[in-house]
Design a binder for these strands. Structure first.
Length: 491
RNA sequence: GGUACCUUGGCCGAGUGGUUAGGCACCGGUCUGCAAAACCGUCUACGGCGGUUCGAAUCCGCCAGGUACCUCCA
């Protein structure tokens, strides 16, 4: 009964009780970023979604090995020559060094994830570091007869595979329909059927990322890395594979085919997919050119943004929707999230001001149970948040003298926030956390406000308002309370 | 064209048959030197049409609109 986690499995499109294969260990694999561009809001969704899962599974007592890959074997080609600088291009240092680009964007990705308080995964394998494993996997699939070589490239034989197994079990597609709808693409002539997909591709002269293989100097196919690396680090069968919904087909379908073709059985037990972030109702994505990078959110430096948003606002905004729903970006929605989160933080900071007042009129344990219930229901973070707002209302109304709390309620409220808001939802107080000089800073503000209290006592409204107005101009919000004052810094 | 999914009040978003989601915004009240915040209260809903049911936002059908995937994409 207690803490039975149900997760929605894309394989059968319903919520299932999560039972690990080898409790207490849990293997979790999530498709990570392709590091050829700045991370945008869309990248934050799966990172945060599976961060919540990682945190919750860990909290439930599982020992989670969380693997999130880095795709760095993209099809990078030399820039088209501009005519002028062909000589320069011959100098090695003047050429694009793919790993330099990878490193640059990977650093930026990590920085953004850190800002969003996304915990680092247990292993972050690079596709480029697992070429040997990928070549081995191609060999295995060839040996089993589900692939063929053609012109130095190797393709997966989807039709043959589909006779023995089921190609399309995840995405609900069938092969006839695919044969009719797949468009003509490069390399089509090498493939026997349009549905076949590349396991290994021979590099054309412009391709600068290339590795030796039994078939050609080339590079691994698009779907290979996840199959090879999940197998290496999590085993032939593991618990959960996650990623964005846009990866269901073809990427994850092909992963299944590759695993099954090489080992004869399924590798993934639960497939989880987060939905997209939309902008004006449309998917935010690189190909549509309608994305806003995380850095632009943090700085406010984008024409569609009316202000800067701190990373915790972005995180809270994402968590206010269930991960399988689309969430539509707008300044209005983000501002609502910002205010809502501030409300929770203020309530939390007010826990120290709670007053014991006889017979308790609230049931904190029931609230905690509801939070667990929501988490167990396929990570229903918006429900958890709504229960935390209920806790915030309890705190505020106690301070306003309208709700009675018993002594034992107070540590329970505090632990409710610590567990759900901070540990599991991964929110943090950006001003205080990791800020060694916060105490001195806070005392200086307190001192100013005490001077203001003195001025108020003397009915010196000019001085009192001057202090308040100038602090307000600096971004502080000053509140007078019955016993004194409260302040916070709006970032 | 095929497949899957979606359509909740001013905005964002929960909710899978009967009980208030929640946040933001708005309005009224309390408090306040003025404010701010907080508290209390009020108000806007379930795309359309049919059906099942004692009862549907929730199940079924049709219609309308939208999105995603089918091509690298979180």
């Amino acid at each position: 009964m207690e803490n039975q986690l149900y997760i929605y499995n894309t394989l059968d499109r319903k919520k299932e009780l999560f039972v690990p294969l080898h409790a207490p260990s849990v293997g979790l694999y999530v498709c990570g970023p392709t590091v050829y561009g700045d991370p945008h809001l869309g990248h934050a969704r799966p990172a945060i979604t599976f961060d919540i899962l990682f945190r919750y599974l860990t909290h439930l007592g599982y020992k989670v090995r969380y693997v999130r890959n880095i795709t760095d074997v993209g099809h990078l080609e030399n820039d088209a020559d501009e005519g002028e600088d062909k000589v320069a291009k011959k100098a090695r240092l003047e050429q694009v060094e793919p790993m330099e680009i990878v490193q640059y964007y990977l650093n930026r990705y990590h920085k953004a994830m850190d800002a969003l308080n996304v915990l680092p995964p247990s292993i972050e394998p690079h596709a480029s570091g697992h070429i040997i494993e990928q070549i081995q996997l191609v060999k295995e699939i060839l040996d089993k007869g589900y692939a063929y070589e053609s012109g130095g490239s190797v393709y997966f034989n989807v039709e043959k595979y589909n006779k023995d197994y089921h190609y399309g079990k995840l995405s609900g597609r069938n092969i006839e329909e695919l044969l009719n709808t797949t468009r003509d693409l490069d390399g089509q002539q090498e493939k026997r059927k349009s549905v076949d997909f590349a396991l290994w591709k021979k590099a054309s002269p412009e391709h600068i990322m290339r590795w030796p293989s039994p078939w050609s100097y080339g590079f691994p196919g698009w779907h290979l890395e996840c199959t090879a690396m999940s197998k290496k680090y999590l085993g032939e069968t593991f618990d959960i594979h996650g990623g964005g919904m846009d990866l269901v087909f073809p990427h994850h379908e092909c992963e299944i085919a590759q695993s099954v073709a090489s080992t004869g059985h399924d590798s993934v037990r639960y497939w989880m997919h987060n939905n997209m972030i939309t902008i004006n109702g449309q998917k935010m994505g690189k190909s549509l050119g309608n994305f806003i990078t995380l850095e632009e959110f943090f700085t406010g430096n984008h024409k569609m943004l009316t202000q800067a948003y701190n990373p915790m606002t972005i995180r809270f905004f994402i968590l206010q929707a269930q991960y399988r729903s689309t969430v539509d970006f707008s300044n209005e929605a983000l501002q609502a999230s910002e205010k809502g989160f501030n409300r929770l933080m203020e309530a939390y900071n007010n826990i120290e001001n709670l007053k014991v007042s006889g017979q308790s009129t609230v049931d904190i344990n029931a609230l905690k149970a509801k939070c667990y219930e929501a988490m167990n229901d396929d990570l229903n973070t918006p429900m958890v948040i709504s229960h935390l707002f209920e806790a915030a209302r309890i705190i505020n109304s106690n301070i306003a003298g309208q709700t009675n709390l018993a002594q034992e309620d107070i540590p329970e409220i505090e632990s409710l926030f610590k567990l759900f808001l901070f540990d599991l939802l991964g929110m943090k107080d950006e001003l205080k956390d990791g800020n060694a000089s916060y105490d001195a800073f806070a005392k200086a503000i307190d001192m100013l406000l005490e001077m203001r209290m003195q001025a108020k006592a003397n009915k010196d409204w000019a001085t009192s308002d001057k202090i308040r107005n100038e602090l307000t101009a600096l971004g502080f919000e000053i509140k007078d309370t019955k016993d004194g004052f409260e302040w916070k810094l709006n970032k």
